[in-house]
Simulated scan of single mutants.
Amino acid sequence: MGWTCSYQHGDLCDLLKKTCDPGDKGCVLYGKAVFSNPETPSNAAVKRREETRKRRGLRGEMEDAKFF
């Protein structure tokens, strides 16, 4: 399955006004997708988002718990 960015025209990103680098900060995919290149900033953002969701989930479970 493929995906085409509507902001990419050749090697340029119309949104960021620079060379296209999928997953770079400001990219529509930033923090939403994991890329095979471990240096892509999006990978760290995805990891932070997952950790935040886990913490919020645990916090919610503790608030729902009843202590007797």
Rank of each mutant, 00 (worst) to 15 (best):
E39P: 01
R53T: 08
K32A: 12
Y7G: 00
G10K: 08
L15V: 00
L16P: 01
C13G: 07
K66N: 05
G10Y: 05
V28E: 06
N43C: 06
F35W: 08
N37T: 04
E61D: 08
P41M: 08
G57F: 13
T19Q: 12
E39C: 04
V34N: 06
S36T: 12
D24N: 13
L16W: 02
K18N: 07
Y7S: 08
K25H: 09
G60S: 10
L29V: 02
Q8M: 02
P38I: 11
R55V: 09
G60I: 02
P41V: 07
M62L: 15
D64A: 15
K17A: 07
G31Q: 08
Y30V: 03
C5E: 00
S42K: 12
R59A: 11
D11K: 14
L12Q: 14
V46H: 02
D21V: 10
K25A: 11
M62S: 08
C20G: 03
P38R: 13
M1R: 06
T40I: 10
T19D: 09
T19V: 09
C27T: 06
L58E: 11
P41K: 07
D64V: 07
R48M: 07
R48Q: 14
K54G: 01
E51S: 11
K54D: 10
M62Y: 09
G26V: 09
T19N: 09
V28L: 12
F68Y: 03
V34L: 10
V34T: 15
L29C: 14
N37M: 02
E39Q: 10
H9D: 12
T40N: 14
S36K: 15
K54W: 07
V34W: 01
S36R: 14
G26Y: 06
W3V: 00
F67I: 10
V28S: 08
A65G: 03
M1V: 11
D21K: 12
T52G: 04
D24R: 12
G57L: 14
R48P: 01
A45F: 07
L58D: 08
S36E: 15
R59G: 01
E61A: 14
M1T: 02
E63H: 06
D11H: 07
L58N: 06
Y30K: 11
A33E: 13
T19M: 05
K54I: 15
E39H: 08
S6M: 11
K66G: 04
K32Q: 15
G57Q: 14
A65K: 10
L15M: 06
D11T: 14
T4K: 11
G57W: 13
G2Q: 05
A45K: 08
L16C: 02
T4W: 04
K47G: 02
D24K: 13
C27F: 03
P38S: 15
N43I: 04
K32F: 13
Y7D: 04
S36C: 02
R56I: 09
E51Y: 05
K18P: 01
D24F: 01
G23Q: 00
K25N: 13
Y7V: 01
D14A: 12
Q8I: 09
D24S: 13
G31I: 00
E50V: 13
H9P: 00
S42V: 12
K17E: 11
S36G: 10
N43P: 09
G60C: 05
E61M: 15
G26H: 06
C13H: 05
T4Y: 01
K47P: 00
A65M: 10
